[in-house]
């Protein structure tokens, strides 16, 4: 066992100090991207699920196609399409924007399916009761159905949000300087694995609070017995 060599290659303070600014910058990009992807994906996913509940056949056909294709496609391919192929149809975008849009689309597809399952699982009698007291469709959705659907979706939604924000690392293929790609280039430049460990720690710092938040929302939304 060569502890000294292990520390030198993986926990080298000198190298850590040198590359700390790079890693921190990468963390900022990851956090920013994670937040905009989560917000955009959750918003559009929920919107699609509510639209689907309107039961308009052509609209639902489009929504189901979108959800199935986006869930099947590897997110990496979507990012590369947006970044490398779209310039040919005169739509150019930054690496950040391409990753943002691609991951938001994928997240929206999953969120739509999760929320739809949540909406369907609320017994029909709930909206019937609401409608029978004169609430309109949107009101019964907002005040009666969705608050109950959300309870069932919190756990899978949190998992999905964590998974998709972690795939912000895929942005590295189009040159996005997020935390993992910065750690990797620092690792090559320094010939030392310490930056990778820093990247790992950076990810923990970013994602552990998200996991805890998810757990908290789950308890918060439990039924009062």
């Amino acid at each position: 066992m060569d502890l000294k060599a292990l520390v030198f290659s993986f926990f080298n303070l000198e190298i850590a100090w040198e590359y700390l600014p790079d890693i921190l910058k990468g963390m900022v990009v990851t956090v920013e991207l994670g937040i905009v992807v989560a917000v955009t994906g959750l918003f559009f996913g929920m919107l699609l699920a509510v639209l689907r509940a309107l039961q308009l056949k052509p609209v639902n056909f489009f929504i189901i196609c979108f959800a199935d294709i986006m869930r099947a496609l590897p997110p990496l391919v979507v990012i590369m399409m947006l970044f490398f192929a779209f310039p040919y149809i005169q739509v150019s975008m930054s690496a950040f924007t391409a990753t943002w849009i691609a991951l938001s689309l994928v997240l929206a597809a999953f969120v739509e399916e999760i929320c739809w399952a949540g909406i369907v699982s609320v017994p029909k009698g709930q909206s019937e009761a609401a409608r029978s007291t004169g609430l309109n469709w949107l009101q019964s959705m907002l005040y009666v159905v969705l608050p109950q659907a959300v309870r069932l979706t919190v756990a899978p939604l949190t998992n999905r949000v964590i998974a998709i924000t972690k795939s912000t690392a895929l942005g590295s293929v189009v040159g996005l300087s997020e935390v993992l790609s910065n750690s990797q280039s620092a690792m090559s430049n320094s010939g030392n694995a310490t930056p990778l460990m820093m990247g790992a720690i950076g990810c923990l710092i970013i994602f552990i609070p998200v996991v805890i938040l998810g757990r908290w929302t789950e308890t918060r939304f439990r039924w009062k017995q």
């Binding site: 017994p123 009698g125 019937e128 029978s132 109950q148 039924w223």
Partner: peptide, 12 residues
């Protein structure tokens, strides 16, 4: 007014 067999109260 409508009163349902399964009450249909809003659980939340």
């Amino acid at each position: 007014g409508m009163v349902f067999q399964h009450f249909n109260l809003y659980r939340h």
